[in-house]
Design a protein around this nucleic acid. Sequence first.
DNA 1: GTAACTGCAAAATATTTGCATCCTT
DNA 2: AAGGATGCAAATATTTTGCAGTTAC
Lengths: 137, 137
Amino acid sequence: MNTFSEILKRNSLSITDGRIKILELFYASDGALAHADIEKNAGLVLDRVTVYRTLQTFVEKGIIHQVPTTDNSVLYALCRQNCANGHHHDNHVHFVCNQCQETVCLDDVTVPAVKLPAGFKPIQSAMIVTGLCNNCK
Amino acid sequence: MNTFSEILKRNSLSITDGRIKILELFYASDGALAHADIEKNAGLVLDRVTVYRTLQTFVEKGIIHQVPTTDNSVLYALCRQNCANGHHHDNHVHFVCNQCQETVCLDDVTVPAVKLPAGFKPIQSAMIVTGLCNNCK
DNA sequence: GTAACTGCAAAATATTTGCATCCTT
DNA sequence: AAGGATGCAAATATTTTGCAGTTAC
């Protein structure tokens, strides 16, 4: 019983080759992945529709989260913190490199609080920083 | 010569009914608009394709900017600051209301700086706060 | 054995492109 | 008049849904 199986088991999901494969991809990447990335790398094993459904399931279970983006792309990344059943404590900064286009989760950098105008009640914050990453600099 | 015409003229764009209409919609809304919102409100006057092309043109000219979102939707909002030709200084916080789903640009709230890990060079930052807005509270 | 998962087909949506026509300058 | 802007048709891309067959437990 390896780590990936444990993750699935912990979330009451059946252990299947496809899900293991997708988890592998996320753990192999230190950044965020788009649907297309996953399909490209797991496409031999998995149907496109299954990729959609698996990502959705993983988001619901809190295994991955959707990463905010400044363009309109949809990215997913592992929840490293204790996120459970759709309740994400995904309050770290995401960094997008202008050079290599990678999106990295800066798990150790928390989103700072801001003072909002009167009447606005904040519940959650997300932050995206673009620039040059440690590889491209 | 009204304001909208001036905006178009300043950006060397032809003054057309469709563009005026779309500018009107943005100025009438204090929040961000999705392609669907615009099409719904300008659909009698404008073809869907024209809406796509106009939004793209406006982004290139720096009249509007794409608003970052935590889900996968694509939103646009006016650049209130001096953005020119695709170079946006869009450094204010965006607020998304969980209740009414409106996205508001908090022009007066600037995105705070964060300390990044060694090797990361920030160029621009975006921030999205979700919660309850001043109307829904 | 049963419920969960997957693949395939197809529907529904969203976005882009080409081209002929019309409008702004 | 000329170049830009628009509408329409159609191509392409993306995401969702239904259902039947398969697999995990």
